[in-house]
């Protein structure tokens, strides 16, 4: 049997590792809980721990998730769900290389309509989306045949869906798409379908929002919840030495500068950076029951463990155990 925890490269018991992490985080002036590639229970537990510590919370994939959110909360958006898109769209435009294809068969809710699916990828995306919007606005513009075909299809469609991934395109391009969708709704129906960022980022953002009112890049240093996409950027904080104690949840842990404490809770085989303390966890949804955001249904879904095992604990249980040892109550609500 392999070990479950390591302290400074040596095997340790889980209990000893939990106690050591709690001690170090309580001693940190500006603790950071990051990575956050975890299930809903893990996100809730991470929130409660951060609140107790006065810590900052950030997600490994927050740049993409926050790029979508920024467009919504700057001026608003009209979106649909993956299931509705599958059932209803007669025209689908996949922007960038990431959004998955949809069946090309007629939409079940409108079976008499054919479904046309286009992919818009390549260079100069901003420029091309600008041309597309101008064409849809009725301006006579010389553009390549692909773009002209897409413009005509969007205008003719009864229910178009434009899919994008914030990992592929710039925030300005997302904004452009949302305005284009808005324009089309003057005469027909068209909705956006953002592709959720990996690492259960959508689910974690939801859980943090119902716990605190805010998504990630959330801080409790002043005792109450604050949200600041720049100030509470984990990568920036680590690079600028604005944190002295990092608890990383999930794969792809960074290597932190000398003198900075790093502990990692992650499934076996994960990249744990230069962590001083590591605890192996169960993988939520695979070997522990979990609630995760499911991109197929565009909602949270309960996933029973496919390979249940009881040696490793899920991240939530470890986070709760750490929190129970951190009695330094900084904030109440």
């Amino acid at each position: 049997m392999t070990a479950e925890a390591w302290i400074a490269g040596r095997e340790a018991t889980r209990g000893a590792a939990i106690a050591a992490i709690a001690r170090r985080l309580v001693a940190s002036a500006n603790p950071l809980v990051a990575g956050l590639a975890t299930d809903i229970a893990g996100a809730e537990a991470a929130h409660d721990l951060a609140q107790r510590l006065g810590a900052v919370l950030d997600h490994r994939h927050s740049p993409a998730a926050l790029a979508d959110l920024a467009v919504m909360r700057e001026s608003g958006w009209l979106v649909t769900t993956p299931m509705e898109a599958r059932a209803m769209a007669d025209c689908v435009v996949l922007v960038g290389t990431t959004p998955p294809d949809l069946p090309h068969s007629p939409p079940p809710f409108a079976p008499e309509r054919a479904r046309r699916v286009f992919r818009l990828a390549g260079e100069d995306m901003m420029l091309r989306l600008g041309l597309l919007r101008a064409m849809l606005a009725g301006r006579r513009i010389a553009a390549d045949a692909d773009l002209t075909t897409i413009a005509q299809a969007l205008r003719a469609a009864r229910y178009a869906v434009i899919c994008w991934s914030a990992a592929d395109i710039s925030p300005l391009a997302i904004e452009m798409l949302c305005r284009l969708i808005e324009d089309l709704n003057d005469t027909t129906r068209c909705f956006g379908l953002p592709t959720p960022a990996p690492g259960n980022a959508a689910g974690v953002a939801q859980a943090l929002a119902w716990k605190s009112g805010f998504p990630f890049r959330l801080g409790y240093a002043r005792g109450r919840a604050e949200h600041d996409p720049w100030r509470f950027d984990a990568a920036r904080m680590i690079a600028a030495h604005e944190t002295d104690g990092v608890l990383w949840i999930g794969d792809e842990a960074p290597s932190v500068p000398a003198g900075m404490f790093l502990a990692v809770l992650a499934p076996e085989g994960s990249d744990t950076g230069n962590a001083e303390i590591v605890i192996s966890t169960a993988t939520p949804g695979r070997d522990a029951d979990a609630i995760l955001f499911d991109p197929m249904i565009g909602a949270l879904r309960f996933q029973r463990a496919a390979v249940p095992q009881n040696t490793l604990s899920p991240p939530a249980a470890i986070l709760e155990a750490i929190a129970a040892l951190c009695d330094q109550t900084v904030a109440t609500c």
Binding site: W77, V79, T80, T81, E84, M88
Partner: peptide, 13 residues
């Protein structure tokens, strides 16, 4: 303020 989030969905949205 001038913003909104509209979701058209199967069922109600």
């Amino acid at each position: 303020p001038r913003k909104f989030a509209i979701t058209e969905a199967e069922g109600n949205g």
